[in-house]
């Protein structure tokens, strides 16, 4: 695999852990907020832990909102990255990138954040080669995306929600594949070697 992988740098925590995860299977990524570098990448990863409205504001200031929406190569949004790819988030009541035509809602029951290992159900699509229903993945989030036509797997925590989505070249996981043990590594590899 010769094509470059770029991890989008922005004002969100723990971007490094995705980089570390790729390195564990021998893939070296660039971490960058340079629009040109992102546009030229073979694949783009949009990770993140943080707050939606503040992060959207930051992306707009840097012009990265437009850049991300227009990408044609495979893009993987993780956790907040996935939520920001939706149309609107209740977190800070903000419009988001609108790649997925769905809202992001706050969990209203149970302990929040939804933190820990939960099972994937109804897995389908490219990310899940060699992954079966019932596989545990690691989540940390307080907001969720309802199940919708783009969902490629779901988990349940009170409501059943989108564990992952795909539309055209855009992939997204609510869970953290980079922290989900050996199965998470398979999922990341499935993306990297698409």
């Amino acid at each position: 695999m010769n094509e470059k992988i770029v991890i989008i740098r922005y004002n969100a925590g723990n971007i490094k852990s995705v980089d570390f995860a790729l390195r564990r299977f021998g893939v070296k990524a660039e971490i960058s907020d340079d629009p040109e570098m992102i546009r030229m990448a073979g694949k783009v990863i949009f990770p993140g832990v943080g707050e939606a409205s503040g992060t959207m504001e930051y992306l707009r200031q840097k012009g990265l909102d437009i850049v991300i929406k227009q990408l044609k190569q495979p893009v993987l949004g993780i956790c907040l990255g996935m939520q920001l790819m939706c149309s609107y988030s209740e977190e800070g009541a903000t419009d988001c990138l609108g790649i997925f035509d769905t809202e992001v809602l706050r969990f209203r029951e149970g302990k929040i954040p939804h933190m820990g290992w939960n099972t994937l159900e109804g897995v389908k699509g490219d990310l899940y080669e060699k992954i079966k229903d019932g596989t545990y993945v690691y989540y940390v989030h307080s907001f969720y995306v309802p199940v919708n036509p783009d969902s490629t797997a779901s988990s349940a925590y009170g409501p059943v929600f989108s564990a992952s989505m795909q539309r055209d070249n855009f992939y997204a996981t609510q869970y953290h594949p980079e922290r989900s043990g050996s199965y998470g590594e398979i999922i990341l590899k499935n993306f990297v070697y698409l």
Binding site: F20, A21, R24, Y138, H176, E178, R179, G181
Partner: peptide, 8 residues
Amino acid sequence: IAGNINIP
């Protein structure tokens, strides 16, 4: 640790 461990 972060570089070598794949759980939180």
